[in-house]
Amino acid sequence: MKQFYTVVLDRLASFSGRLDSEPYETGWADELIAFVRVHEKASSTALRAWLQISPDGIEWIDEGTSAALSEGSSLLFMKARDFGGWVRLCVECDDECKVTTYLALKG
């Protein structure tokens, strides 16, 4: 059977501005779904998220996948493949918000 693992990158994390997750090693996985669950946020504030990849977990570049939180929703997701050995999840929100972020990895 394939391996599967959901890692919680940031749990109940409050921030405003930008939240970059810690580097997470993904070399074993073929595919992922990244989730951002929004616990608290001003209703009018936009929130978006995107993925970055890295050769070494130190230098980062946008992978190209991004998503914005839909109005009235508390959850967004992104799918990706061919991301190599490291992924991190970036979230941006202009006002104070509280999120839990995940990578659901399979390979």
Binding site: E25, G27, D56, I58, E59
Partner: peptide, 11 residues
Amino acid sequence: GPPMLSSATFP
């Protein structure tokens, strides 16, 4: 910090 499966890859 959570566990991860690492390939121990360096720059």
